[in-house]
């Protein structure tokens, strides 16, 4: 059993990407009904889920593959479920948020612990993004909206193409530039 202090070091803590996703989503879903269904995928510490919940009054579900993350999210008052991406969820959801691991990484030098897993996007940075996009249409309500944080390091164009191949329309809702990357919040909706 991992102790609590060590556990926190192994769970991704809120950073610029989390803030951009949380604030953008909270603004965009401000008008959701109180009984709307919202899920935060890869919730980590639960920051995005808690921020959106606080801003909207909607109960936001947080899912994560890491046992340490779901415990920490629950400690932060987030309803937590352990699941790999959307695998254990039936939906339908009115909003789905995801701040994925997106740093392109050398396959030989990763996955040693939960923190690396939370950061590593595999060789092209899309190890978690691609299966998420493939499964999102299944759980997204007809008028539901996905909010995906993408970095220029991950190739925003490639992400949009994968979304389109799954019948999803994309639109840039917000962006923020940093010295080595540009962060974008992509909206994902069922294409007409």
């Amino acid at each position: 059993m991992v102790d609590r202090e060590k556990a926190t070091e192994q769970v991704y803590q809120p950073a610029e990407d989390s803030h951009l996703l949380a604030e953008t989503t909270a603004e965009q879903v401000a008008n959701l009904e109180a009984d709307a269904r919202v899920v935060d995928v890869g919730t980590g510490s639960g920051y995005v889920a808690a921020t959106v919940a606080e801003a909207t009054g909607v109960d936001v579900l947080g899912v994560d593959i890491s046992p340490l993350a779901v415990r920490e999210a629950r400690d932060h008052g987030v309803t937590a479920v352990r699941s790999n991406l959307l695998d254990g969820l039936a939906g339908p959801f009115d909003a789905v948020t995801f701040n994925p691991p997106y740093l392109p990484t050398d396959p030989d030098a990763e996955w040693d612990d939960w923190m690396e897993y939370a950061l590593s996007g595999g060789p092209d940075g899309r190890r978690a993004i691609d299966p998420f996009l493939d499964d999102l249409p299944r759980v997204l309500a007809p008028a539901g909206r996905g909010f995906l944080l993408v970095s220029s390091l991950t190739d925003v164009e490639a992400v949009s193409e994968r979304a389109a191949a799954n019948g999803l329309a994309t639109r840039e809702l917000a962006e923020e530039s940093f010295p080595f990357e540009r962060l974008v919040v992509l909206e994902l909706t069922h294409a007409e």
């Binding site: 593959i65 046992p67 779901v70 415990r71 629950r74 937590a80 479920v81 352990r82 699941s83 790999n84 695998d87 254990g88 969820l89």
Partner: peptide, 11 residues
């Protein structure tokens, strides 16, 4: 401890 674990057995 209040958390459902919906990972398949091999994960």
């Amino acid at each position: 401890e209040g958390i459902p674990n919906l990972l398949p057995p091999d994960m």
